[in-house]
Design a protein around this nucleic acid. Structure first.
Lengths: 341, 341
DNA sequence: TTGAAAGCGCTAACAG
DNA sequence: CTGTTAGCGCTTTCAA
């Protein structure tokens, strides 16, 4: 007996529409629309009537209808490969921090590094007429690129800058970073370097880093001793296991470059447990610069990537619609030598 | 000169519509609609014509229009407080893993633990007519609850079960967990317990844990020595700093319960660096059970929470529409004593 | 400052 | 199996 929302044959209260509010307020639908959108030139009297009616009915605007009419939404499609380490949540955080300041909402798709899923996800997200789309990597396959280019929206690709973006790209140069890693190890006197990766190198950027690392080491005359790529997902645990196995089978190895900090910290923990001195017995170099590595008792040497910033820049580019200009934003990385080398 | 998509006075190619595809294929719009939605009873000939035309135009269905017509979407609103530690990304991962299996997309809102922003975010997300909404915590304020209950969609609240859900809740009993933490410390012989929190206890669940912890300790005759709540965001770094400060000013403290594992691992790292024995000089107990703590050389004692599972269950409840039944799913926690106590 | 009419792109309901 | 008609809830355009 609340006289609350409109009823339908005694069924559940339906979501109120503009029409309901208009009727209750005794004004036209368009007036309600104007009040809700804070359009100019509204008398206080009208606004008051509408606001009261809207509150009474618990009215929430239906943006689906609005978007259809105006052919624009406040949705931004965000396609990320994974949520299982610190990297993409931080990127997403950066994206969201900018979007929310502009009244935009991220709609999320996670691909698990599977290009089939990526195609589905992109289709799904585009069907919502987002105002723009952020994707991970520059290597979407042809079907995806084709669909994307048929939309008239800005496209920003994140993480990588070594390649050709569809519109704009914000990221870092992974090959370059890996070559720098190789140089660093050699410069520090390491002569028997190894590499550890995981998840069967699904993240293609890690494969690129490994290859660049390997190539540069070879050029410098101190070739990679071994690369161990676990099939398991990357994790601290996996890092510990693979490090143990690697050092058992290749005791001469004096430095390890990891695909990411999670693995590297696993390696560090393994060494601590087994009494191996870092960097005395083995030097460790990670990739990403996550907080755990930086606060660890032995500060992890790593290549710091600007993940939050990358998300922010990507979202900003979308909003400014500079994305169509073939822009490549190389955010760079910072090598932190820490105390593990 | 591609003869590609439709042009508009030599302007950019517009996004193709059903009508465009229908014209090109020489069939009716509804037939195109049926083919796109894989409706039954379509002849191969018709399907073929439509598919060819759709591909030629790079047609993507406009779900905004579809949703308006059918009054249902494939969007699920997800409101989370933060992305800045491992917890909510894991929950989101769980949510997404279920949603994607059902063709649903999460639309994300992040509140930064600010109830004003939460209200805005909820409004924004609801305006997209999601099929359901997942929120964090049971303590939304009245304005938010009011709006939510005016929608005719399932509502699932995650993280907490100690309270009254709007529809359904999936989480754990934080007060209970904290009392168990107190019992554990006392049982293990600790007599001078302390507590460390951060971010001014914005996450209300951490305050609840602290209070329950403190109350139970008092009941047992070994009251809390001190609680230090940093104003900074929770992080490994913050954990190290606060632990150092706390032990400096309260050297008698023999055990610390942390608001989360990030802080606790910071504490562990601090002790390692300063040569304090764990658990000889001080016992450490975290909360959450994140991977770093479990793989650390001194395995962190913690209260394991099922975050991925929580996301999965929340999404499943939404989909099964059991959410309206006042269901409370207590997923429980597991105390892992590790080697830091 | 307010209102009336038309239609965004799609699909349910009903023919044929 | 395919097509015609109508209208979802909103906002643009035009009129008052």
């Amino acid at each position: 007996m609340t006289g609350d929302a409109k009823m339908q044959n005694g069924k559940l209260p339906e979501r109120a529409t503009l029409r309901d509010v208009a009727r209750l307020a005794g004004v036209s639908e368009i007036s309600v629309s104007r009040v809700m959108r804070r359009a100019p030139h509204i008398s206080d009297a009208l606004r008051e009537k509408v606001v009261v009616a809207a509150n009474t009915l618990g009215y929430t605007p239906n943006r689906v209808a609005g978007a259809l009419k105006t052919a624009t939404s406040n949705l931004v499609a965000v396609v990320l490969p994974s949520m299982s380490n610190e990297v993409f949540p931080e990127v997403l955080d950066g994206i969201e921090s900018v979007l929310s300041g502009h009244g935009l909402c991220p709609v999320l798709g996670i691909t698990q590094y599977d290009s089939g899923r990526e195609l589905e996800v992109v289709r799904e997200l585009l069907s919502w007429s987002p105002v723009g789309i952020i994707l991970t990597g520059l290597d979407q396959d042809a079907a995806i690129r084709r669909i994307l280019l048929h939309q008239n929206i800005p496209i920003v690709q994140i993480m990588d800058v070594e390649g050709t973006p569809l519109h704009a790209a914000v990221g870092i140069a992974h090959g370059q970073a890996a070559r720098d890693a190789a140089e660093l190890l050699i410069e520090r006197g390491y002569r028997k370097p190894a590499y550890i990766g995981a998840w069967a190198e699904r993240p293609s950027r890690s494969r690129i880093r490994r290859q660049a690392f390997e190539a540069r080491l070879a050029e410098r005359g101190h070739p990679l001793v071994t690369a161990q790529i676990s099939a398991k997902k990357s994790s601290v645990q996996t890092g510990a296991e693979v490090t143990q196995a690697l050092l058992a089978t290749h005791p001469a190895v004096d430095a390890i470059f990891y695909a990411n900090d999670d693995l590297a910290i696993g390696g560090m923990f393994h060494c601590m447990k087994s009494g191996l001195a870092i960097p005395g017995d083995v030097g460790l170099l990670g990739f990403n610069g996550i907080s755990f590595g930086q606060a660890a008792p032995i500060q992890l040497a790593t290549i710091q990537t600007p993940r939050f910033e990358m998300g922010k820049r990507a979202a900003s580019l979308l909003i400014e619609k500079n994305a169509a200009k073939g822009l490549i934003v190389d955010l760079g990385y910072r090598i932190s030598v820490g105390s593990s080398l």
